[in-house]
Structure formats: structure tokens, C-alpha cells
Design a binder for these strands. Sequence first.
DNA 1: GCTCTATTGCTAATTTTCTAGCATTTGCTA
DNA 2: TAGCAAATGCTAGAAAATTAGCAATAGAGC
Lengths: 128, 128
Amino acid sequence: MNNETRDLSRRERQIMDLLFRVGRATAAEVMEGLPDAPSYSAVRALLRILEQKGHVRHEEEGRAYVYLPAVRRDAARQHALSHLLKTFFDNSAEQAVAALLAIKGEKMSEAELDRMSRLIDAAKKEGR
Amino acid sequence: MNNETRDLSRRERQIMDLLFRVGRATAAEVMEGLPDAPSYSAVRALLRILEQKGHVRHEEEGRAYVYLPAVRRDAARQHALSHLLKTFFDNSAEQAVAALLAIKGEKMSEAELDRMSRLIDAAKKEGR
DNA sequence: GCTCTATTGCTAATTTTCTAGCATTTGCTA
DNA sequence: TAGCAAATGCTAGAAAATTAGCAATAGAGC
């Protein structure tokens, strides 16, 4: 199984992103969530291809297939985050946090910021 | 100009990632950096397409073209980070920091962690 | 039970992407 | 100067991606 997102085509990537975001979806739900959505049968054909490639699996609920990523979300998120750091942040976590705070900082509660501080403190203790 | 990365094809995305990572590159350098690299002329054709689409621009250095992203890196990084948060972290900065520390925390210096703490403290003050 | 809608599997056509070759030019080195 | 290598612009064809239609079936509602 090849999990490399760099090998995904345009539509494949859109679909994987959507599945990671919502967790699981029927073909109809995938179709509704796609930008410039093609037909229902086009979406199903793409899902079938993604399943053949091993990126997606399906479960049956009633007569409908519900599709979900083949890889667990937490593994995928770590992989995506690593790739982002490498591509845009010279592998620097500090730079990423700075960017994160620039985007979200104003909108975060003090409790949330405290929790983040505590995460960092915990990392300090482990690093010792 | 459409900057949406979700509209990029497989190879286009590989090239944009590479350009964001290294900042600027000749066609030969792009070719060397691509997985399963095609020929030099194939890479140039792709760069030309990316330029026509407005994702890339070139400057002339001597007789060679040096290609760079059309959008500034800090704008691109914020956009990519927002997309990552939405796709994998339910838009939660706290979750993203937790994942970041899980990946990088052990390898970070205490000074680095301190600087991150200070960034968060500064965000607290601004939020008040 | 019947009708309708939503589903599946499959396929082929169309469109887009990807690739490399050619002709020409340019710069460098011997 | 000549030769070579590296560059450009351009093009066409191969490969891959995308799309939608069809036949058949299953489930829901009346």
C-alpha cells in the first residue's frame, strides 16, 4: 500500500481531504462536498480507484457503501504535518507555532492558550 | 490568478511543493528534486504550464530561467496551514500543537521550547 | 404489490496530464 | 574559431485522469 499523497491526482486528493475532514462518507456525501462536483457515477468511479490503490476502504451500511480513509487519521495527520513543516517551515516547529498563532491566536481563549503552554511544559520535562 | 492548491494536478503539486521548499530553482534543479523525475524537457513543459496558470513566475539569470512561486512564501504557508488545520485537526490549533510536539518535541532544545512558550504568552497578552 | 428512487458494478469516451523529441540559440572552453 | 553542452520554445503523441451512461438490483413508501 502506497500512502504517498504526492502521488494523488487532483480529484483523488480532493476526495482524500474530504474523507479525512469528515471521517467517513457515502458516495453521495462525497459528491456534495467536492468543488465543481461531477456526477454521482463519476464520484463512485473515483472512489473505486482510490480503494484499488489502497487509500480508501468501504463498509456497508444497509445497501450503501460508506467510505473512509484506509489509514488512521492520527497517522495521516502526523504525515501531513511533517510534510507541511518540511515544505513551508524549514522543519521548524517554532516557526509553525508562530504562523499558527498569527492565524488563530486572536480567536483562541485563554484556556486554550494555557493548555498549549502546558503541552510545551510537558515536552520540556520529557526532554530533560 | 487562481492559487488554489486543490486544483493542482499530481506533477504540478510536486513542483509547487519543491519550489516552496527551496524558494527558487532552475528547471534542472526542479528535475533533480522530483520523485520519479521525467526528462528535462518534460519538466520545462510543466513549468511553462504552471507559469501560464499563474502559480509560478521566472526570472532570468544569465541565460537560464530561475523559477519561483508567484505567491509569497508566508502567504502560501498560512494558506497551507489553515487547510491542514481544517482537514486534520477540526480547526483546532491546540490539537495541531499537540501533534507537532509528538513529532518534534523530543528533538527540540529547551531554548526552542522556551521561545514557543513566549509566543503563546504574547498571544495571551494580545487576547486580553 | 407496485412504483420510484437510490444504489451498485462496469465500461467506454472524453479530457487532461504528462512526456520527450526537435530545431534553434547561447555560452564556455580548448 | 569550432565544438560541445546547456539552454529555450514548441509540438505532438502517449498515458492517465475524469466523466457519465447503462443495466441491474435493492430498499422505501404508498
